[in-house]
Nucleic acid binder design. Structure first.
Lengths: 143, 143
DNA sequence: TAGAATTCCTAGTAGATTTGTATGATTTAA
DNA sequence: TTAAATCATACAAATCTACTAGGAATTCTA
């Protein structure tokens, strides 16, 4: 399964963007400094996020990024899907040397990984960017 | 997070072992052939499984491995814990350059990764080796 | 008792992947 | 016109995975 810093960074950056966005776009430089993620790396992530219509890029001076749709409509699964290739634990795929790949006897654990995939994807499917913000607001208030 | 073939192989091998064990121990050579996992790699996994008291090794000719306790008492989380170093998605640890590492402002997504960890671990915590076998039996019967 | 089959143990390593860096072109506001 | 930003591509260091190699120790069996 792919669940590395790439996906984490993407979520962190999107949360940062949502948190700090009002009228004007937020530059990656800002996010880079606040979240301690390299600028070039962020740029690569945001190109992917843009291609999936999650953010809008505004070039030029005073440019930056804005959310393409409200935080309440962006699921974490959207973000992961945009930057990660896939969230699959299984490698019993066709034409693979490994796994059960269509042998007469299915590998014993085949269904298990299927269920795990659903379990994890379900988690991301049920959390929206907005939820992270709310959580953060409350945390701030309780200090 | 660590969720690679190492953990998968361990679960597959344990399921195979449980499935084929009656009186005599099961050799890794058998498992290696049936599950298509390299023998040396299996050996390394089983040393770890042994150290966590999940299997018992019987050296010498006609030797092999047996379950140390019934399949109904072995949770998948036990298996993962034995062979993987950790199942943690978070890298906001102390002394790390990355993540929120104790800055005054907690990183926005800190709690999220915590919850994800619990979510995934909960999955493994609630599946026992026995469950995999039952599933397999039923699959065979429905053919 | 010799030999075969097995676990046990340690070290190394090729290849893939991740996590960036480097460089420059393009666009736009001031 | 200049500075600040996105956009785009190529490359590279570091890490990690998934093994391989080689042998020692143990135990059953012929």
């Amino acid at each position: 399964m792919k669940l590395t810093t790439k996906g984490r960074y993407a979520v962190m950056a999107m949360a940062d963007l949502a948190y700090h966005s009002n009228e004007k776009p937020v530059s990656l430089t800002e996010i880079s400094l606040r979240q301690n993620i390299s600028l070039s790396y962020l740029e690569q992530l945001f190109i992917k996020l843009k291609s999936k219509k999650l953010v809008k890029g505004l070039r030029g001076s005073r440019g930056g990024y804005t959310l393409e749709k409200p935080a309440s409509e962006i699921k974490l699964s959207n973000i992961f899907y945009a930057v990660e290739e896939e969230v699959r634990t299984l490698n019993c795929k066709k034409d693979s040397k490994r796994g059960c790949n269509n042998k007469s006897v299915k590998c014993i654990t085949h269904n298990l990984w299927d269920r795990l995939d659903n379990h994890i994807n379900g988690f991301f499917e049920n959390v929206k960017l907005e939820d992270l913000l709310k959580e953060n607001y409350e945390q701030q208030r309780n200090k």
